[in-house]
């Protein structure tokens, strides 16, 4: 079957053909019985599909379905709040400690060193993970 014939049969079965395309298909089908047979077989397949329809989930799964969706939405929102809160509190604490003149300079220096160290470790791990994601062809193998 040629692509044009396939296209016309497909559109005719789905009710998407224009009157002009239906005339063209009819003319083709009149000159070639194979096209008519194919059209009828495709229409029968489409009718079978439409008559059985979409299966529905059983009542137990259907009843629990929304809980799964809701908990995912809630969980993601929860993480967003936790991360945002952590960043704000950490940033503010660093600011307070570094700008408080009553704290000993040595303590402020140690505090700053600790956070610079943590930042370096995080950036190092992140860079390593990124390099691994780009270059390691076995990255997805569970070890």
């Amino acid at each position: 079957m040629r692509p044009r014939e396939q296209e016309l049969i497909c559109k005719a079965v789905d009710g998407a053909a224009t009157p002009r395309e239906l005339e063209e298909l009819e003319a083709m089908a009149n000159s070639d019985p194979g096209i008519r047979q194919e059209l009828e077989a495709q229409q029968a397949a489409a009718v079978s599909l439409q008559s059985v329809g979409q299966p529905e989930l059983n009542d137990v799964i259907a009843a629990q379905f929304w809980n799964g969706v809701y908990s995912r939405i809630e969980c993601r929102a929860g993480w967003a709040f936790v991360i945002a809160g952590f960043l704000v509190v950490t940033g503010y604490t660093i600011y307070l400690v570094l700008t408080d003149p009553q704290l000993a300079a040595l303590f402020r220096f140690g505090f700053a060193c600790m956070f610079v160290g943590i930042a370096l470790l995080i950036s190092s791990v992140a860079r390593h993970r990124r390099r691994q994601a780009v270059h390691d062809k076995y990255k997805e193998v569970v070890r």
Partner: peptide, 8 residues
């Protein structure tokens, strides 16, 4: 087209 042909 091919899917319906195979299904039939």
């Amino acid at each position: 087209y091919n899917a319906r042909k195979k299904l039939a």
